[in-house]
Amino acid sequence: MGTGTGIGRVRGLGSAKSGALHWWHQRLTAVGNLVLMAWFVTSLVRMPSYDYKNVSEWLASPLAAVPMALLILSVLTHLRIGLQVLLEDYLHDEGTKLGAIILLNFYVIAAGALALFSILKIALGGAPA
């Protein structure tokens, strides 16, 4: 570790920089999830039926497709941070921990890509034959 005084070596590092960012994003997405899931659960319960015509027409409207996309982003960001905390708490081997966090990130990205592509296809693709 370089030269200089103790404070000079650590200045700009650590939690003074971005240490609280995960904490803040976890709470930001918690409130996002609260609002968006309230919308989603209400929509599901009020939906007259779950047949293909009904759900696809519902999801094609901008006021369903956009909140659904935001819901996916908020939920996946929230669970990515939350599960990373669990992995860091319970996995003590550095290699296993690193591997698990990589898998978690791949899971979140794959689920997000599939969900967003599906929403866009339903919303922009028109009615399939």
Binding site: I72, L79, L114, A115, S118, I119, I122
Partner: peptide, 16 residues
């Protein structure tokens, strides 16, 4: 994170 998300994404992909 696993059950709920997989079911939701499966539902969206099934509609699409």
């Amino acid at each position: 994170a696993f059950g709920g998300v997989l079911l939701l994404v499966w539902w969206l992909a099934a509609i699409a």
